[in-house]
Simulated scan of single mutants.
Amino acid sequence: MAPFSLMTAGVSLLAKSFNVFCTSILARSTRILPATYFSLGKSLSTSTSNDGRPKAPINSYFRYAVQQKPFVVRQNPAMKLTEVARKIGQQWNTLSPEEKRPFEVAALRDREQFKKDLEQYQARLTPAQIEQKAEERRQMLAKRNAIRKKRELTSLGKPKGQRSSFNIFMSEQFDKARGHDVVAKMKSMRDEWKRLLTYQKQVYIQRAEDDVVRYKNEMRSWENHMVEIGRVDLLREKTLTDRKRAAKKVTAAESTALAFAKSTAAKKVTAKSKSTASKKSSKSKTTGGATGTIRRTK
């Protein structure tokens, strides 16, 4: 159920982004292009960002989507954004190579201009600015990776984290909190929590302890499932350490058992050898004594 809900939310978010993107592009346009023609002299890419860096131009498909969206919406006013995006995608797939060529040529032209503008922009940067841009990019990529990982964990059904007693109290009483915005409500909730008596807080403290048990059980089951499907990389560091420690104990126990078995087998072989040697010695003495007796008799 969780993956389907995530997919639905992703489609909705994509549609909203598509709407905002097309709206911003069209707002910069000075005229509405015909539905069957695209002017090569019209650039749909944004010029520069707030810091002066040139922005990358859009590709051929998005150029077509920006052009066609007003016409599709005008013809289908009740159509949802997701359906508009799907319809434009279907139209694009039915275009012939000749019909797509103007959009591709325009996208290629803007791409070449973007490369030139980017080189000029980078040439004006100081070493300190270059280092700052690199650090900003590292932070952006780290944030993006964190978001992707969180979405992946949600789609894989990772249990929700354990809640504190105050979190439980806040989730239940937030709608009743005083204040016109979230910050004011949070402040009033903290004040209200401090005013609670010990026995009143104990109810939420007990529920928080129960939630810890719930979280541990669900996480244990979820991590076992991750091991089964080969996603050991998603296990917590503590779980990995415990698994390594348990594996070492098993290996040590197996080594001890093997060594004991070898020692026992060696002792048995030694005992058997001594027994055989003793029997041979006794037999030899008996044979020698009999021979001596026979000789004395003669």
Rank of each mutant, 00 (worst) to 15 (best):
R74H: 03
T293S: 11
S188H: 10
V269M: 02
V250C: 01
V250F: 08
G292I: 10
N217P: 00
S12Q: 15
M170C: 12
F169Y: 03
L14Y: 08
I294H: 00
R111P: 00
G157R: 05
E237N: 08
S273E: 13
V203H: 09
R220K: 15
T36M: 14
K187W: 03
F260G: 00
R86S: 10
K283A: 12
L81Q: 04
W193R: 11
A128L: 09
E192D: 09
T154R: 05
E254N: 11
A266E: 11
A85K: 10
S39G: 13
N93C: 01
G157Y: 02
E254C: 06
F114K: 04
I147R: 04
P54D: 02
D181W: 02
T270A: 13
A107L: 11
T8C: 10
P97L: 01
Q67S: 06
E131P: 05
K298I: 13
K42M: 06
R101A: 15
F38Y: 14
Q173W: 00
Q68P: 03
E104S: 02
D175E: 15
Q67C: 07
Q202A: 15
N224L: 12
A56F: 04
L95M: 09
R295A: 12
Q68C: 13
K280E: 06
S284C: 14
T293F: 01
T291M: 09
K194Y: 00
Q67N: 13
A290T: 09
E192I: 14
K133Y: 04
R28Q: 12
F166S: 07
A123V: 04
T23A: 14
S164E: 01
A265D: 03
T293R: 10
Q132M: 06
V20P: 02
K133D: 03
T36H: 13
I25K: 12
K115S: 12
Q113P: 00
R31V: 10
M189E: 03
P127E: 11
S24D: 12
K283V: 09
P34E: 07
Q122W: 07
D110G: 13
E83Q: 12
A123H: 08
